[in-house]
């Protein structure tokens, strides 16, 4: 019977293409379920999930919470800002204390890359990475790839460009892994200061000219400028960034073909993406959010089944 090859979801890097396909097939069924009159199924009735967020989040957290609720799991929420972490408790102590209360799965977001990997080596529960620093954000990449598959019918052979702050983006790295595994062609585009130095080693191309990148691609995934992670100044001003790398509707309309626009949110409107483009027919940003719940339900369901 089909099963994931991994007991945790730490990153896309550890998944096989078959794993990703299995998650997509399961998500198709959950997408049907969340469009039913009654959106809840009893599958995870006897499972308790802890949502442990050491970093701020709205979308991901609500999406996970809804996915857990629609699977009938019991939930405990934990955010670092209002907890004993402030008193100096270590990560492992915090999580072990939560696990002592019989929790089966942990969804964790942490500012340090590798924190979920560390955790998974020390605890018995399944760990789902909901973003670890600038490293990976696997469920976001899964829902991005799923949304492309839904919009274009397939991923293999499609051309996807990731635009913007690649250096600080966990979404970019996870997307590159996922899209490459599924057979897409991937390029990154952005100011040279925001591109990691050895990014070509991942088997992708770099394009510095935004217009050329857009003319090439079928899908443009636009990433947020992560000002909170930038300790240096990587470009002179937001206005200048918007001028060279910002995407607006007149730019999209001037291309020789119609492309699809994605954004993992939250959008800096008027910086990397203008309002007229974000709300246009090119955009599948809200489909991404809807698919996020189905994808997270699939991941939770498959990992819970793995514990049997």
């Amino acid at each position: 019977m089909p099963q994931l090859s991994q007991p945790h979801l730490l990153g896309i890097k550890n998944l096989t293409a078959r794993d990703i396909e299995l998650i997509f097939e399961t998500a198709d069924n959950f997408k049907n379920i969340i469009n039913q009159p009654i959106k809840k199924v009893p599958a995870l009735r006897d499972v308790t999930v802890a949502n442990v967020f050491f970093e701020n989040s709205t979308r991901t957290r609500i999406s996970f919470e809804l996915a857990e609720k629609r699977l009938s799991a019991d939930i405990v929420n934990f955010s670092a800002s209002s907890s004993s972490v402030k008193k100096g408790e270590t990560l492992l102590d915090t999580v072990n204390n939560i696990l002592a209360m019989k929790v089966d799965m942990v969804v964790m977001r942490h500012a340090s890359p590798g924190a979920p990997h560390f955790l998974s080596r020390h605890i018995k529960a399944s760990v789902i990475n909901a973003g670890d620093g600038t490293h990976e954000h696997p469920t976001q990449a899964l829902l991005d790839a799923y949304s492309i598959r839904e919009k274009l019918g397939a991923i293999e052979g499609k051309k996807v460009v990731l635009i913007g702050d690649i250096l600080h983006s966990r979404v970019a790295l996870s997307n590159i892994f996922a899209l490459k595994k599924l057979g897409a062609e991937v390029k990154v585009c952005g100011p040279p200061t925001l591109l990691p130095r050895h990014i070509r080693n991942l088997g992708i191309d770099v394009e510095l000219n935004l217009r050329k990148a857009l003319e090439w691609c079928d899908v443009a995934n636009i990433l947020r400028i992560q000002l909170e992670r930038q300790q240096l100044r990587y470009f002179p001003s937001l206005r200048e960034y918007a001028l060279y790398y910002g995407i607006n509707l007149s730019l999209l309309n001037s291309l020789n073909k119609k492309i699809t626009i994605m954004h993992p949110g939250p959008i800096n409107r008027g910086v990397e993406l203008s309002s007229d483009a974000a709300d246009s027919a090119h955009s599948i940003i809200l489909d991404q959010v809807e698919n996020g719940v189905a994808i997270r339900m699939a991941v939770l369901y498959l990992l819970a089944g793995k514990q049997a």
Partner: peptide
Amino acid sequence: FRRREIGK
């Protein structure tokens, strides 16, 4: 569910 292997 979780008491036996999951099916397709």
